[in-house]
Design a binder for these strands. Structure first.
Lengths: 221, 221
DNA sequence: ACCTGAACACCGTTCAAGT
DNA sequence: ACCTGAACACCGTTCAAGT
């Protein structure tokens, strides 16, 4: 975790906290995980870290900047897990499918974190450089995998970027429906859809992503 | 923007508003459309309608109940547009594809409204009866269309519910990526993805939804 | 340079009281 | 039954002042 590039410059203790930015970010992540985005208040983050409520503004421009940092971390984690799944799966079709599983697994394991990344809390206009970089990096992992499948003749030779977006829309759609409780069955009771429902849909989605929904007799091309 | 259909009820100020619930809901819809969900405050809704800030609580339990009502209206509109597209398209494959276009069109035309419906602002635990009914109704339009295609032998005979969820995840994913600005090209400047980007992805998605991404040589079944 | 404490302008929600 | 006005407990953010 300690990948701080220039944190070695920090003397032992400025005053209260060694690395307040990191501590605030960790606390925000924990709060979002337990209470959701709606439950996150800057005042409580500060209080939990043991610092004044205005100390945060020395490290983040405002609440949205903190959320953008949270989203950035999410994309970094997501990219790592996608690449890990791709490689562990042998960088072929099995690896590609494993990326889909890893993607949905991430969203189901951290729904609130996932929502910060995609829920429109940070507007695109803000143009956070780190966020854009990490988001693009996570997407690139998918593009790279798809390009490899194309090289091996396993998938169509369509425009890789458009194709990757389609695949992304697929897993993103499954993830959103899953964490939004839209997959609940009549007998499920309350709460979000059971993991079993999401898994079943995901398995089916991966199959159909490859072969489509048409009957073979009805195929056009 | 003055799209008030029957808002002839705005004159002086009688103590009892004609239909305050409807007026508050319309004002909330308009505010969400122009300022987004984040910009919606109960106080301003009341002020705009010309009523005390606590009058709202006679018609909605709290802010979330108001948002649930907004979402309910969204699902009702969505269902109408889906069914209209299906019927205008001839209740066949063309009509099915038209439903996908109508779905994404709705989300792009009213991104904030769409986000209220799917952004996790109203938790599933609340169990709003009207909301559940309308959401199920919109989904049922898709299930019905898919069942018709199955009867005509145009699509696979897989479990209709699972299949419908897969299709829903597809259009939902395209819609979310589109309104979230994730489809921006390097040259697009700021703001959400251009409608052209969303359209291009949607057209591709509908094609691949039918036939899948695998090369024919690589098909399994 | 980093943090505190008090202040400001907001917000959702409640409740006794008016009509 | 429907609505008002004042009040309460919050919140994000700012800023002079401390260290």
């Amino acid at each position: 975790m300690a990948r701080s590039p220039r944190a070695a410059r920090k003397p032992s203790r400025p005053y209260h906290h060694g690395n307040l930015r990191r501590a605030l970010l960790d606390e925000a992540l924990a709060t979002i995980g337990s209470d959701g985005v709606e439950g996150l208040t800057l005042r409580e983050i500060g209080a939990r870290v043991g610092v004044s409520r205005s100390a945060l503004y020395r490290h983040f421009a405002d609440k949205r900047a903190l959320l953008a940092a949270v989203a950035t971390e999410g994309f970094r984690t997501l990219r790592r897990e996608l690449v890990a799944a791709w490689e562990a799966g042998g960088r072929g079709r099995a690896g590609f499918d494993a990326m889909g599983v890893a993607y949905v697994r991430f969203s189901v394991a951290s729904p609130a974190h996932y929502r910060v990344m995609f829920g429109g809390f940070i507007d695109a206009k803000a143009g956070d450089a780190d966020l854009d970089t990490e988001a693009a990096g996570a997407f690139q992992a998918l593009v790279d995998a798809l390009a490899a499948l194309q090289r091996d003749g396993l998938v169509r030779g369509d425009d890789t970027l458009t194709m990757a977006r389609f695949v992304w829309a697929n897993v993103h759609g499954v993830a959103m429906l899953g964490i939004d409780g839209q997959l609940r069955q009549p007998g499920d009771g309350c709460g979000p859809g059971r993991a079993a429902d999401v898994d079943a849909l995901l398995r089916y989605a991966i199959e159909r992503l490859h072969t489509g929904i048409d009957r073979d007799a009805a195929r056009r091309s």
